[in-house]
Amino acid sequence: MVADLGLENDVSTGHLRLLVRVARMYHEQGIRQPAIAAELNISQPRVSRLLREAVKRGIVRTVVVLPKSVHTELEERLRHRYGLRDVVVVDTQESTQNVLPALASAAVDYFDATFAGGDVIGISSWSETLLATVERMQPKTSQVADRVMQLVGGVGSPEAQVHATRLVSRLADLTRARPIFVPSPGVVGNASIRDALLQDSAIRGVMSQWNDLTVVLVGIGSLEPSPLLLSSGNAVSQADQEELRALGAVGDVCLHFFDAAGRLVDSGFDQRVVGIDVDAFRSVRRRVGVAGGLRKVSAIKAAVKGGWINILITDLQVAQQLDAD
């Protein structure tokens, strides 16, 4: 943009006129530097110097105009406020009740841009949003991951466990990676069973590889199970929900429930989960949470406050709530 402003008196009017003329030819008329040099009968290096001087003197000012669907200022505020590595805010064109398609598309774009060759990817076993994300992904032409690892055993009914296995398998196929499964239910009857399972050589072999993770992809659950989990035989029973609610739980990541401040809730339920432990999860450098919808605002806010995730992909309404609170 060529500005209309008063200028210093340290240069002649003729020089200022030349600066403005060159700036307007280049920035407003789109004339290339060699053509400007030929028309004004000056050298191309001088044209370059004049353009730099026009910027330095404030004759030319660069203004970034944000498209309506891009919210980088909001993303920056959330990143600084919550200490996040990155934030992606998607403006959903659907009703506020159906943010999943837009979230999934945004997640696909983000993963396409950030997956690097050799990544070891962990993915939560059962997430409606991640399922939609993986369904939208296109196969990679080269290997972008070494392994795709299941983070929690199967959740809910046998049918749901099959879906969880398919989620890991499909992401591994798309990224040309090797799938690694947790050969166990996600939640068992009591802590003794869980402890015994963790001694199994097959499960221990998976657990040791969790230390290799470079990125994890997770949904963020609220205390009330999603319709998908309810229909599939949700593993968090009514009694478990009541216990967790009494302890102040508002949401979960990989079936680890936390309170409004993001602190892990020490519950009997947590002692029955077969999956990645909290310390191993938090040690992963990139922890990407994909979640949205106003019913999950409390859970998402707690997840970012507690450091469960450090990269957030969410919708505009949730982002505005996080910014306003």
Rank of each mutant, 00 (worst) to 15 (best):
Y110N: 03
F111Y: 09
W308M: 11
T133F: 13
N211K: 14
R77E: 15
A303R: 06
L103I: 06
L78E: 09
N211Q: 15
T129S: 12
V20E: 14
S208P: 02
Y82G: 11
G293W: 09
I59R: 07
A249Y: 06
I311E: 15
F115D: 04
R85Y: 07
I193A: 00
G186A: 01
L103V: 07
V90M: 07
I276N: 04
L244Y: 00
N310R: 01
Q238C: 04
D200G: 01
E159I: 05
A319E: 03
D200M: 08
M149Q: 09
R81K: 15
L322F: 11
R285P: 02
A299S: 15
V278T: 12
D277S: 05
S169T: 02
A191Q: 00
V152K: 06
F281H: 14
R61L: 15
V216L: 13
R24E: 14
Q97I: 01
Q238E: 15
R49L: 07
T175H: 01
I276C: 09
D315K: 02
L174W: 04
V304R: 08
G307A: 11
A260H: 06
P45L: 06
Q138F: 10
R286V: 13
D10G: 00
I311Y: 13
G156A: 08
V297S: 15
S69Q: 13
E128M: 05
G117V: 10
N234R: 02
L50S: 02
F181R: 00
Q161I: 05
V162Y: 08
E94G: 03
A324K: 08
A172P: 00
S127E: 05
Q138H: 12
A145E: 09
S169N: 03
D277G: 08
T314R: 07
H163V: 11
D200P: 00
R32N: 01
V60D: 07
L198G: 01
S48P: 00
L50W: 01
T72H: 14
G122P: 08
Q238R: 11
V88Y: 03
